[in-house]
Structures are given as structure tokens and as C-alpha cells.
Simulated scan of single mutants.
Amino acid sequence: MTTTDDFRAHARELKADLDAATSEMMKLISEHQFSGPEWERVSQWQHEAFERWTSFLNERSYPDSGNHSISP
């Protein structure tokens, strides 16, 4: 697997986890469950998934796409 493939695979994995956590949180919201152990679990999961996603996006080790031109 190339560096670009690794990057894309990791991005897909992190995004899928964040999407799942956010969906679960939205489900609880639609059920008016804003407290309790399930809310705490899902809230923590969503927070940590978001932190992993933003850390990944802020890394400086993006694969080189070969396109260095900047268009106006």
C-alpha cells in the first residue's frame, strides 16, 4: 500500500467512526435522552472521535499529491 493509500484508508476509518458516533448522538437527541450512562458513553465517544479526526487533519504528513500549483 502506498502512503496515499494509507492516508486515505486511515481518513476513511476515522471519518466512519466520527460519523457513527455523531449518528448515535443524534439518535439519543431525537429520543430526548440528554443524560444518563448511555448519553455519557456516546458523548465521550463522539468527543474522542472528533479529537482523533481533527488531530489527523492537522498533521503535517499529508501525502504529496504532486500538484503544487496554486490557482487564484
Score class of each variant (00 low, 15 high):
residue 27 K to T: 06
residue 45 W to F: 13
residue 47 H to T: 13
residue 58 N to M: 10
residue 38 E to T: 08
residue 72 P to M: 14
residue 15 K to F: 05
residue 11 A to V: 07
residue 62 Y to V: 05
residue 34 F to Q: 00
residue 10 H to E: 06
residue 2 T to A: 09
residue 66 G to R: 13
residue 23 S to T: 09
residue 46 Q to M: 09
residue 69 S to C: 08
residue 21 A to W: 06
residue 35 S to T: 11
residue 27 K to M: 10
residue 44 Q to V: 11
residue 40 E to R: 11
residue 30 S to R: 15
residue 40 E to Q: 11
residue 68 H to N: 11
residue 9 A to Y: 14
residue 46 Q to L: 02
residue 47 H to V: 01
residue 39 W to H: 12
residue 59 E to M: 14
residue 15 K to I: 03
residue 32 H to S: 15
residue 52 R to C: 04
residue 9 A to F: 15
residue 47 H to Q: 11
residue 37 P to R: 08
residue 66 G to P: 03
residue 57 L to T: 02
residue 31 E to I: 04
residue 5 D to I: 12
residue 62 Y to K: 14
residue 17 D to F: 00
residue 50 F to D: 07
residue 24 E to H: 11
residue 70 I to M: 10
residue 24 E to D: 10
residue 19 D to Y: 04
residue 15 K to M: 04
residue 18 L to Y: 05
residue 41 R to P: 06
residue 2 T to E: 07
residue 48 E to C: 04
residue 67 N to Y: 07
residue 31 E to Y: 07
residue 61 S to C: 01
residue 65 S to E: 03
residue 10 H to D: 12
residue 2 T to M: 02
residue 33 Q to Y: 00
residue 9 A to T: 14
residue 70 I to W: 11
residue 39 W to N: 00
residue 29 I to V: 06
residue 14 L to I: 09
residue 65 S to P: 00
residue 63 P to M: 01
residue 12 R to A: 15
residue 39 W to P: 00
residue 9 A to L: 12
residue 60 R to N: 08
residue 47 H to N: 08
residue 38 E to H: 10
residue 17 D to C: 00
residue 59 E to F: 07
residue 14 L to F: 01
residue 49 A to H: 00
residue 38 E to L: 12
residue 57 L to R: 06
residue 3 T to W: 11
residue 58 N to S: 14
residue 50 F to N: 09
residue 9 A to C: 07
residue 70 I to Y: 09
residue 37 P to F: 02
residue 62 Y to H: 12
residue 31 E to H: 05
residue 60 R to C: 03
residue 70 I to R: 11
residue 63 P to C: 10
residue 18 L to V: 01
residue 24 E to Q: 12
residue 10 H to S: 03
residue 21 A to G: 04
residue 67 N to A: 06
residue 70 I to K: 10
residue 4 T to M: 05
residue 15 K to W: 03
residue 48 E to N: 09
residue 51 E to G: 07
residue 9 A to R: 15
residue 40 E to N: 10
residue 40 E to H: 09
residue 42 V to M: 11
residue 13 E to K: 13
residue 38 E to M: 09
residue 31 E to S: 13
residue 19 D to F: 00
residue 20 A to M: 04
residue 2 T to D: 10
residue 61 S to Y: 01
residue 12 R to I: 13
residue 56 F to P: 03
residue 16 A to T: 05
residue 49 A to G: 00
residue 72 P to F: 14
residue 28 L to R: 07
residue 49 A to C: 03
residue 56 F to W: 15
residue 26 M to I: 04
residue 9 A to P: 02
residue 58 N to F: 14
residue 54 T to P: 02
residue 33 Q to K: 15
residue 5 D to L: 12
residue 28 L to A: 01
residue 14 L to D: 02
residue 72 P to C: 08
residue 35 S to A: 15
residue 5 D to R: 11
residue 49 A to Q: 01
residue 8 R to S: 04
residue 53 W to S: 00
residue 35 S to F: 09
residue 6 D to K: 09
residue 55 S to F: 08
residue 41 R to T: 06
residue 8 R to T: 03
residue 55 S to K: 15
residue 61 S to K: 04
residue 31 E to V: 06
residue 30 S to C: 04
residue 35 S to R: 13
residue 57 L to G: 05
residue 71 S to K: 08
residue 46 Q to P: 05
residue 42 V to H: 08
residue 31 E to L: 13
residue 28 L to W: 08
residue 22 T to W: 00
residue 8 R to W: 06
